[in-house]
């Protein structure tokens, strides 16, 4: 896969919520493409729509209007089961609060997405162990989440997101719950994996230090893209033609 090929396209995407009777426009007319191998940060203040955007890209939510294309696949044409399987195989998700499964240890957490996909226990544990070694947690394979530090938990979460060799890893504020040094370690780890495994990363952050360390930044405010550095934004004509 070349870095120039398009992985995900968002065309005129809107997302509207209702808080009681109040209508909240979380995203307005979002148009951009994510290319294979991108390492993109979504920046913006709280309430700007970062999480809403990542939820749509990670297919755990659906747009009110507009279209999301994953390669040639229109997401809105898929059933819930198809979307779920698609997520399992193509997308890795890293949560702000790690969201590790407390009854599973580190290696079982990482192996979990493979086991959903009916990979044997032996193979999935072996692959998960290797991946945890790669992210520097070889000594903590059998530790339950409550025996890991924040940074270690997030490394486990990243390993879990990478275990199925997804085309893209989506991380919502992956450093928000960490101190600045650990946060930078996580970003550097993600960058390293991006460079070595060519995995596409897109993540949100409002930490200027993190933003300074990435190549492409899309800045949101009040649900709209107000700035894009090295990101592939789409013109109105491109959207209409697509």
């Amino acid at each position: 896969m070349s870095k120039s090929s398009t992985l995900i396209e968002l065309n005129s995407v809107y997302k509207t919520y209702f808080l009681g009777t109040q209508k909240v426009k979380a995203l307005k007319n979002i148009n951009f493409s994510i290319m294979h191998g991108d390492f993109i940060a979504i920046a913006g203040p709280s309430g700007s729509g970062k999480s809403s955007l990542l939820n749509l890209i990670s297919m755990i939510d659906e747009p009110t209007n507009g279209e999301i294309l994953y390669g040639d696949v229109k997401i809105k044409d898929l059933t819930d089961n198809q979307i779920t399987s698609f997520r399992n195989k193509k997308i890795g998700i890293v949560f702000q609060n790690y969201n590790l499964i407390p009854v599973l240890n580190a290696v079982e957490n990482v192996a979990f997405p493979l086991q959903i996909n009916k990979v044997s226990k032996k193979e999935s544990i072996e692959r998960a162990s290797n991946l945890l070694e790669e992210v520097g947690l070889g000594e903590h394979l059998n530790h339950r989440p409550n025996n890991l530090s924040g940074g270690q938990k997030q490394r486990v979460a990243i390993a879990r997101a990478l275990i199925t060799n997804p085309e893209i890893v989506i991380a919502d504020e992956p450093t928000a719950a960490l101190d600045s040094k650990t946060g930078m370690d996580i970003i550097n780890l993600m960058k390293h994996l991006n460079e070595t495994k060519k995995t596409t990363f897109i993540f949100s952050s409002h930490d200027p230090k993190v933003i300074d360390n990435v190549d492409s930044v899309i800045t949101l405010r009040d649900g709209e893209i107000i700035q894009a550095e090295n990101a592939v934004l789409k013109s109105k004509e491109e959207v209409i033609n697509s």
């Binding site: 819930d80 997520r87 949560f95 969201n99 499964i101 997405p113 959903i116 996909n117």
Partner: peptide, 16 residues
């Protein structure tokens, strides 16, 4: 609930 959301996000089907 959040844990269920997580495993659904990771790829567990509704029926499962």
């Amino acid at each position: 609930t959040r844990e269920i959301g997580t495993i659904r996000a990771i790829g567990v089907l509704r029926k499962n």
